[in-house]
Write a protein that binds this DNA or RNA. Sequence first.
DNA 1: TTCTTGACTTGAACTCTGTCTATCGTAGGA
DNA 2: TCCTACGATAGACAGAGTTCAAGTCAAGAA
Lengths: 137, 137
Amino acid sequence: MSDLLARLRGRGWRVTSQRRVVAEVLDGDHVHLTADEVHARAAQLLPEISRATVYNTLAELASLGEVLEVSTDGRAKRYDPNAHRPHQHLVCSNCGTIRDVHPTGDPLADLPAEERFGFTVSEAQITYRGLCPSCNG
Amino acid sequence: MSDLLARLRGRGWRVTSQRRVVAEVLDGDHVHLTADEVHARAAQLLPEISRATVYNTLAELASLGEVLEVSTDGRAKRYDPNAHRPHQHLVCSNCGTIRDVHPTGDPLADLPAEERFGFTVSEAQITYRGLCPSCNG
DNA sequence: TTCTTGACTTGAACTCTGTCTATCGTAGGA
DNA sequence: TCCTACGATAGACAGAGTTCAAGTCAAGAA
Ligand SMILES: [Mn+2]
Ligand SMILES: [Mn+2]
Ligand SMILES: [Zn+2]
Ligand SMILES: [Zn+2]
């Protein structure tokens, strides 16, 4: 995420303190925070940052392909900085923990032409569910 | 869906006019309505039906396994009467149309043990995305 | 360095989706 | 036909996200 700010500057973005702290909060592996979680952590670094700015920045980063929007349950969307290596998600049905996983093979290959209804299919999103070690008695 | 009411009666449910119209609205193939869409259609058959009753009934049907809750986007959950044959979903990225699809093979087989992080994995939900014939110029 | 300006940020009101609760109504058994 | 526990209702409430008018400031120009 460190050169993210450089890439954004290259695209003509103003680099503001708000955007810097959002980028900082989104650093790491297996990070899948909700917008309000991002806001809470950003506010520890920059107390006056507003909710609207966090929502705006996350939506912009997502539309540039710099972060992924992940909705595993019907609740709040989660924001994923691991946008440059394709992956899927494994979610604990009990506690909600999310891990990045890398299945073998091409998921699109399993959808035969007669099951495509004339669609141009470009992507397959897989959510694996189960119990994590802590929740699995 | 016609014998649904019989199954519910067998489980000790009271068969009310509200539950009848919800069951009627949920009949058909490739049906994936939101709760408020179900409410709107039910209200054409039974104008005084309330939003709360539709939400309650759908949640109960889902917990009995009679309908599926599907969340393909971060928006409203959709309710799927096709609960007795396992399937996945194909969604148009442009207009949101949803089709039931049946991929070949077992999706769980593609997740190797070293990518399971000690989880007991029981289910894989796949959302295929692309453009439907109408949206694909 | 200072000036200028349009992009960015803010906070509050607003929308959408879903839940809860107190009260009223009725399906179905006695 | 009567009883009553289960179900329905309206409206308040909550969580997630969006919108907007007004104020602020990053960064290029001079
Ligand atoms: Mn991820
Ligand atoms: Mn379906
Ligand atoms: Zn768990
Ligand atoms: Zn379409």
